[in-house]
Design a protein around this nucleic acid. Sequence first.
DNA 1: AAAATATGTTCCGCTATGCGGTACATCCAC
DNA 2: GTGGATGTACCGCATAGCGGAACATATTTT
Lengths: 286, 286
Amino acid sequence: MGRNRTIELLRDVDDLPADDRQFVAALERGLRVLRMFSSAHETLSNGELSRGTALSKATISRLTYTLSRLGYLTHDPASGRYRLGPGALALGYASLSKFDVRQVARPLMQNLADYAGASVALCARDGLNMIYLEFRRSPNALGLGLDIGDRIPLATTSVGRAYLAAMSDEERKPLLDEIRRNDPSAWPKVRRGIEQAIRDVAERGYCTSLGDWVPEIHSLGVPLDVNSPYGILSFNIGGLASTLPPRLIETDLAPRLIGLTRRVAEMLGASAAAERLPVKPVKSGR
Amino acid sequence: MGRNRTIELLRDVDDLPADDRQFVAALERGLRVLRMFSSAHETLSNGELSRGTALSKATISRLTYTLSRLGYLTHDPASGRYRLGPGALALGYASLSKFDVRQVARPLMQNLADYAGASVALCARDGLNMIYLEFRRSPNALGLGLDIGDRIPLATTSVGRAYLAAMSDEERKPLLDEIRRNDPSAWPKVRRGIEQAIRDVAERGYCTSLGDWVPEIHSLGVPLDVNSPYGILSFNIGGLASTLPPRLIETDLAPRLIGLTRRVAEMLGASAAAERLPVKPVKSGR
DNA sequence: AAAATATGTTCCGCTATGCGGTACATCCAC
DNA sequence: GTGGATGTACCGCATAGCGGAACATATTTT
């Protein structure tokens, strides 16, 4: 039966088509737990995990036990709290390190961040979020305490909207559906923001979010449509509203961020080169 | 057995006490899959994964499907191969970024790497491996293509032995048992190396591995016994045998690496400060 | 050209798995 | 003390998810 035609978009957690004989739920649950750890929650207790993941206490207990045995979490016996262990590190870093857009973009991002007295980020999509791949900020910039690996919403941030604006209509459609389903009550407003962004990107090359996500934060985003394994990427400049007034964005920062994006895109002509090492069988010990 | 032409870093801690009512096996299997991806294997096919993890084809197929849906892997339809997706990144990076030993040590490590024309690494233990937390190398140094997040064996490398040397006898005991069980035939030789290292560290503050892991690689290691969430850490200098002759190590490099370690340890007086944010319940959507 | 290999996906029966309710054990605060 | 948290352990039961095999599909061999 050749019915597996659907494009593999990364459907986010939460909506499991339930009756999927292929889906390994226990794995998903375990990853839900790991996912809770971010720069905002360096350490978490079983209780917090249970609340944050909507999994039963017993289940969490088993999962944290398993993850600890495997080195993905470490347990602080004194506080009874967990934090990411050395094992977790290997996962993420491997993908980051060889990802050359970052190397190329980093110095330019730092310059612009310093110039604007704000922060500049490079993001990819992860479900209904945008995830920080690279992040530079001006030393004296105030802002949210974000860092590489953190996630921010897709629908209400400028990076997210820039991302959406760069997609083809067919790709965007299902994603918008999901956003709507995810929070129907917010949808009318969210939708307007996105449509505006699509127009803005088409006409001026950038879009904004002036307090649409966090009231006191302004930001602008520009998509980078380059052939990366993570698909479309996008840049933003973000900071306090007072630092980034609309006029400044429009006349000065937007052209600069667009320029940055253009230069990065140019520098990425020669990439690729996939090496494929053979993988030896592992003795099935156990 | 055959020559180790390709270095297999991913040997897992294969021996789990099996009958553990608390242990979630499906989760472990899924993580085994993610773990296969490293700087040596940027992309992998289902077949390679099946071989490398000793899991059945059907199981791998289900796991890669699940991981892809969740954004931890991305699938390249053309080649049929997987690579780590944006989701994976969030895991590792969160733990790395806030880990201040790295910030402190990095510049010193770079200096020493440049001076020695070799590479310098900071490692923690992950099962029976040492994992690279930070890594600096001289621009013109040849060596293994390692990077942050990669793993190398505990028992035959200098960092690993330095780590072992810094443990208390009671802690070390079970670990040594595990090493022995993991490869009984190699044990006599491995054991001698470790005992030598323990003596060396006690008497001179460092230990070496002169080709004990990879024939043409020499290295020396120094433990850093500081109160970190990852437990004991250790530094190494590593490079080609011709670059790191024993005499040079003994007279020049060892004192320098010990000095580096000492300085890092001193700088880490004022650390700690744990912030604990509350965790809001998640609407149990589903 | 098959035919032979190697690859990945799907199907399906069976059992071990892992889920969650409950009970138990601590630890706080008051 | 009691009441409210917290985390672990137990255990019955449904089902998740495992693996062998059948089925596709691509790649190479003859």
